[in-house]
Structure formats: C-alpha cells, structure tokens
Amino acid sequence: MVEKITVGHVHMSGCTGCLVSFVDNYEGLFKILDNYADIVYALTLADVRHVPEMDVALVEGSVCLQDKASVEEIKETREKAKVVVALGGCAAYGNITRFCRGGQWNQPQMESFVPIGDLIDVDVYIPGCAPTPQQIRNVCIMAYLLLKGTDEQKELATAYLKPLMDLAARGSDAKRSSDACGCDLMYDVINQGLCMGCGSCAAACPVRAISMEYGKPQIERDLCIKCGACYAQCPRSFFNFDVINEFEGITELITGVME
C-alpha cells in the first residue's frame, strides 16, 4: 500500500462542529483512516497534547488575540504543517466570532477573534457552518492525491483545489477583505451583473437567512452568521469548467476511493 498522509485537527475558538462533520463521514471515516490518512493530532480524538509535524492541518475556529496559547498554537501549526486548511466558517471568516466583543466573565478581556488568515498564510478554505462531511472528504482525498498521487492525479487535485486556494489567498491577504456575509451575493454577484437566479445560495445557507424573491436572493442580514457558504456555493462565484465538466469521472473516482 502507498504511504498515508498525516493529518491533524487543530482546535482554536470553534465549537467542534467542524470535527463532528469530519466524523460524519461515518463508515467513510474508517476508510480514510485505514488507507489514506493517519490522524497525528486531534485533542478531541487522541491523546497527543502538542502540535506535531504533519502534512495537512485542519484548523477549526478563529483565534482569540487575548489568548496567548491560541496565538502560539496557530503559529506553530503554520510552521509544522505543509498544508493548512481553514476548516469551516470560523477559521476562514470568523463566522459568529465576528460578533464577539468581550465583557464576559471569567475572561472579560477576551474580545478579539480573528480568522486564522489574519495571522498566518492559509492554503485552502472550506467555508460553511458546519462545513459538510463530503466537502471535507473531497479535500482530504485531493490533498492525498496532491501529496502522494501520480502526475495525472496531482494535476487533477491541483485543479480541484484551486478555487478553494483562491478563497484562502483572498482571505489571507490583509489588503482584501476576509469577511464573509450574505452581502457577498450582493457585492460580488448581483452588483456585478452575474446572478442568474438559480437559488443555490438559499439552499446553502445554514440559518435560512436567504429567501428567493422574484428569483433573486433576499438576505436577512439579522440572521446571517457570516459563514461564507452562500457565496462559495454560488455557481457565479467560481466555476472551473476544467473540473466541473468532468463531474462524472471525478464522482466515480471519489466513490471508487471510498469503496
């Protein structure tokens, strides 16, 4: 058997929902762990207490600037992981921690929570709250192919991951916004003359903040939690023909890998 990749789960200020989602691959989780990836770090699942070297770090949660341990751990993660994945809305965009403003006992000074891209370079984003088991699985498989696959597989993995890397590049670039919100549909799709009224955004939203009114999204901003799912799901945010046109083959590949 080919060598496995090593994967870690790094828990910042998140709710563990992202990790639960990974575990929600059910039988597939065993498949991944038997054949493709060893979990070398995950406080919730294993006894390793300090961040080790690893191929892929799945980081969940945003970073509290007033918690030294968190800041140290995210820096250490960047040093020790070849690929850093922002797993879920909190790590990628801040999500609900964007609303934090401190004032709560026993640590009222903890008021600043930032997406991990504000402190380190991030390679891949998986938006959403929670990110889905299938999206996490796909990223794991592609990361495996990227690191251990044939040239052809590497090419596919690169093409597949590119849009998620572009989201990460944008999020990690201080000059461009790393904010996420239903408003992205306004700014980057409708205001740009690109919306075609498919309704993907409304389906994607995990808090039912989007309804379709006369074929266009209406965003209830007082419900939005800033997870980034709607925009990333929109076919007019990114659409890579070279990958999506091959949906039949790629679906077969993924099914095959998981069998």
């Binding site: 200020s13 509290c64 007033q66 609900i96 609303f99 934090c100 403003r101 709560q104 009222p108 903890m110």
Partner: peptide, 15 residues
C-alpha cells in the same frame, strides 16, 4: 481554558 467567546454578551441587542 477555552477562550471565552462571550455569547451571552454578544447576544445583547441582537434579534
């Protein structure tokens, strides 16, 4: 020793 996100406080004023 989990950082306090302060949900009880951030809730104030929200719907």
């Amino acid at each position: 020793i989990t950082p306090v996100r302060g949900v009880e406080k951030l809730a104030i004023g929200k719907t």
